[in-house]
């Protein structure tokens, strides 16, 4: 067997740069996703026509491949609106937009389920005290729902951390793209992809640990 440890060590700094970008993309995208997801999750539950907009968004994103969504943003949008994007669109921006929009749809479903899991009596108690339905949502329902959806939000973060590798297809040098470059330069794919796998593993395991600590800390009042 020919496993070159020295190549592992020498590839680490370059790959780490990619890992940092991967983590950064994912963190920003999921944060935006939580904001979008809260808005669309509530819209999805409303009895106004807005819920059809939310349903359309959620179905479209969840029913099409992320890679296709990335291509639509990166290649499609500048082509459709040439006046707005005279010099095309930066891969970094396209990746962030695509990942955020994608995450928003999944988080919307998580938020919806979280809101629906809160007992009806909570809403009734708040309304009976004279709170408006908006105040009830903000002060009573959402704080409890968010506590409950921390584990699925953690899963969403981990899923997106892995799926963000797809933005390598628009030449953004996150972890997978860096690996392709290093591997092409060294002709040692096993060592390089082995390091990549370990790096993803460290990130995902760390995130799930943080999530379970958070979950335990916030268990007060459940």
């Amino acid at each position: 067997m020919d496993f070159q440890w020295n190549l592992v060590w020498s590839s680490v700094p370059t790959l780490l740069e990619g890992a940092v970008l991967t983590l950064q993309l994912t963190t920003i995208a999921v944060s935006v996703g939580v904001v979008l997801g809260t808005i669309f999750g509530i819209m999805r539950l409303s009895r106004t026509p807005l819920r059809y907009l939310a349903m359309g968004y959620i179905d479209f994103i969840r029913g099409t491949p992320l890679l296709v969504q990335i291509f639509i943003i990166y290649y499609g949008v500048p082509n459709l609106l040439p006046r707005l994007f005279t010099t095309g669109i930066q891969p970094y921006v396209a990746a962030l937009v695509a990942l955020s929009i994608n995450s928003g749809a999944y988080v919307a479903e998580i938020v919806r389920a979280g809101i629906q899991s809160i007992e009806k009596g909570q809403t009734e108690a708040a309304l009976s005290l004279g709170l408006s339905s908006t105040a009830t949502m903000i002060h009573i329902i959402l704080p409890q729902a968010f506590k409950r959806i921390i584990p699925p939000l953690g899963n969403e973060f981990i899923a997106l951390l892995k799926d963000s590798s797809l933005v390598s297809a628009i030449a953004l040098e996150e972890l997978v793209r860096k690996a392709q470059i290093v591997s092409g330069r060294t002709f040692r794919p096993f060592e390089v992809w082995f390091v990549v796998a370990i790096m993803y593993l460290i990130m995902t395991v760390t995130v799930s640990r943080i999530v379970s600590i958070l979950e335990r800390r916030l268990r007060v009042g459940e």
């Binding site: 007992e119 009596g121 108690a125 708040a126 009573i140 506590k147 459940e222």
Partner: peptide
């Protein structure tokens, strides 16, 4: 069922 707000 009381319906107190458990997070407060």
């Amino acid at each position: 069922r009381f319906n107190l707000f458990p997070h407060m």
